[in-house]
Simulated scan of single mutants.
Amino acid sequence: MIALEIHICDQRRSYTARFATEDQALTFLTVRGMTHAFHEIKAEPVDWAAFPRLYDYLYPECEHGMRGDCYGPQHYYMTDDERRHAGW
């Protein structure tokens, strides 16, 4: 079973959606991707070994081959001191 928090952006409300298969979850997310945000529920973690395509959809790799937020060429967020040193 896959459980995800679905947030309807323009209505400012969320609900939990449950899916029996990875294909169901991916179809739902693809169709609703322009108007909804999706999050894994910490209390009901997804078995990523069983659902690798869903993992790739929710946590895509950046151009540096890393997952999560990417803040540019260095990948990680720079502190104020690092930005000043870099001339930004």
Rank of each mutant, 00 (worst) to 15 (best):
M1N: 10
I2M: 05
I2G: 05
I2R: 01
A3T: 13
E5C: 09
E5D: 03
E5A: 07
H7A: 08
H7E: 11
I8A: 12
I8G: 02
C9F: 13
C9V: 14
D10M: 02
R12T: 09
R12L: 15
R13E: 14
S14Y: 13
S14V: 08
Y15Q: 06
T16Y: 04
A17H: 05
A17M: 02
R18N: 12
F19S: 04
A20I: 01
T21A: 02
Q24D: 14
Q24N: 06
Q24F: 03
A25K: 02
T27E: 14
F28E: 11
F28R: 02
T30P: 06
V31E: 14
R32L: 11
G33Q: 04
T35N: 09
T35W: 00
T35D: 12
T35A: 14
H36Y: 10
H36W: 05
A37M: 15
F38H: 03
F38N: 06
F38E: 07
H39L: 15
I41H: 02
I41P: 07
I41Q: 09
A43H: 08
A43Y: 07
E44W: 11
E44C: 10
P45Y: 03
P45E: 12
P45H: 03
V46Y: 02
D47N: 15
D47A: 08
A49H: 02
A50M: 11
F51P: 00
P52Y: 04
P52W: 05
L54V: 04
L54Y: 08
Y55T: 05
Y55P: 03
D56Y: 01
Y57W: 14
Y57A: 05
L58C: 00
L58H: 01
Y59H: 10
Y59W: 12
P60T: 00
P60R: 07
P60L: 04
P60G: 01
E63M: 09
E63Q: 10
E63I: 11
H64F: 02
R67Q: 01
R67K: 09
G68A: 10
G68P: 01
C70M: 08
Y71F: 15
Y71T: 07
G72F: 11
G72M: 09
P73Y: 03
Q74L: 12
H75S: 03
H75W: 00
H75T: 00
Y76K: 09
Y76H: 10
Y76I: 07
Y77P: 02
Y77M: 15
T79G: 05
D81T: 07
R83T: 11
R84N: 11
R84T: 12
G87E: 13
G87R: 01
G87N: 09
G87A: 06
W88C: 13
